[in-house]
Design a protein around this nucleic acid. Sequence first.
DNA 1: TATATTTGCTTAATCGATTAAGCAAATATA
DNA 2: TATATTTGCTTAATCGATTAAGCAAATATA
Lengths: 343, 343
Amino acid sequence: MAKKNKITIKDIANALNISTAAVSKALHNDSRISEKTKKAVRQVAKNLNYQPNHLASALRSGKSKLVGVIVPKTNSNYFSSVIQNIEEILNGEGYNIIITHSNESYKKECANIDALLFTQVDGIIASMANETVNLEHYEKIKNIGIPLITFDRGENDLNVDYIGIDDYDSSHTIIDHLVAQGCRRIAHIGGYKHTRIYNNRIRGYIDALQKHNLPSDKELLIQSSLTTEDGKVQMQRLLNLKNRPDAVYVASDYAALGALQILKEKNIDVPNTIALVGFGNEPFANMVTPSLTSMNLHSARIGKIAAKTFLEYTKKEKVNYSLNKIILDAKLIVRESSNKKGI
Amino acid sequence: MAKKNKITIKDIANALNISTAAVSKALHNDSRISEKTKKAVRQVAKNLNYQPNHLASALRSGKSKLVGVIVPKTNSNYFSSVIQNIEEILNGEGYNIIITHSNESYKKECANIDALLFTQVDGIIASMANETVNLEHYEKIKNIGIPLITFDRGENDLNVDYIGIDDYDSSHTIIDHLVAQGCRRIAHIGGYKHTRIYNNRIRGYIDALQKHNLPSDKELLIQSSLTTEDGKVQMQRLLNLKNRPDAVYVASDYAALGALQILKEKNIDVPNTIALVGFGNEPFANMVTPSLTSMNLHSARIGKIAAKTFLEYTKKEKVNYSLNKIILDAKLIVRESSNKKGI
DNA sequence: TATATTTGCTTAATCGATTAAGCAAATATA
DNA sequence: TATATTTGCTTAATCGATTAAGCAAATATA
């Protein structure tokens, strides 16, 4: 019935014969409004089924109570878990989130940022696309003056808060583990060097090999897009080598999955002929046969910290960006694909 | 520098010594504004780096250009694919989407709807939580008069557009396949009957068995939450039967995965002792060993159709809800877990 | 009792963009 | 040439909520 005619504070004001200002204040529990009036306003609001118009209050207050989230993809468990935890924290403080994904495309990422700024979000929490090298679109966010928090894939150059794990150290943990398993010729299918986290993993890989006095063979270090498809391609490339590796450390579970499929196809014994370690601890790591050793990235904690970091900014008068790095320790989950001793 | 002082149409108007009305019209390419003025306005807007204030225009026009999406979970490939495709279509028409997930909880779903309505979305595309039986919160959306489109998990009682697959028919396809494989005692780990899609799958299962003159044993029909965890529990229950099934049709890949893990644990030959079929064709269906036969649900098409259905409504003067059912044919992807003949 | 403070509201401006109504100048038509 | 129409803008109201400024009545303080 009464479909179109939405209830506004004006309707409440008219019903009680008071001003809209009084209604607004009563609804916000202003101390200068009498309890009697407040009660009456709340009652009428309830009776009329009043729903505040968010656009109007957002326009007036300058706060949309929306936070934008940019992830490279939503169909990875890592990112969807981060998102869930961001949402949980922010919902509790009256914020809603707008989720966008770049699909690893720089162009899409730019479009996402434009869309989010257009929607007048109060802040942005982002993890960058693989393609992203130029950071101008992120500088745009900073220029507007709303909080910008990065996680997982961020860049030092941007000089904003960052939450992630210690990638350099994680590589050490993985190499230490593989060496302890008796592996001596360890390959690395890594991401692109221009992305900080992948660069750190590569550096960690090289330094850890050196630490163990193992040769660092150039043909064993591969840069990849880290998709399942490219994992297959790169694993095949490693198998084509005259001198094959006895272990492969892959910087993403998705690519590790592709590698595993090739290894199974070729009937290569995993872990005894070639041990395999992934990164990210996606749920399927536990589902495949052999189950995949992988690094757990604490997605839930990262999401919660990112959200809380944003909330910190909202309490400040002015946004002063700072590279506040929060680095968590990742945990290696050892499974069949790298456990030669069978326990 | 010029951080806080955002550029508005007033700034453009002042720069050119014309009215804000003229600027607004020029930016919207109104035919009553001269080309000369339009060019000047566009130039100044560009120079000043003008970004329209979405909240203001949304408030005035009554259109937020936001669409809410409610899914039970985002970490399933099915839902994330639907979302991606909704987004793709809607972005093309200038809409942004707000993604929320109920986490299968009725309470969370209610909260999501309130949050979306509060944000003044122009429409909602939803798939219901497992827990949802009462539909009052969805009626609220209808009362407000914005488009409501459901997919996958919808209810006839709601009488709104629905996009999904033919669940009843899908069960027939699966049973036909299992019977062709020589299975005679087929169990069904299904969802809750109160959810239409699961009820249809159950009805299809029962009718298909009858069609093949197979006994429909009550102990072989199980209602489940269809999580991986419950898949394990229910598979164990089936194995405890005196008269075990020789095939299990599970209404979700997640639960099928749990079932498969139990079967592997007990060293039961899949598919030869017990054949297994899942539903949803999640990516891991292809990753596990043995790979899992499953129903492909056309997530991309469903997302695109849902978005286009919403867009249809926006072209109409008034929203007239109608149960416009769009039913796609699901496709059975036969893999190792049910392929006894080996090809 | 006279003055100061507090209480409980109202008035009017405002956030930025859009739009109905209208007006003067330019152009078209009779 | 006189009138009608079109062009290109302006003025002012509006979307709904918030808030600074202010006022009268009630209460507190000197």
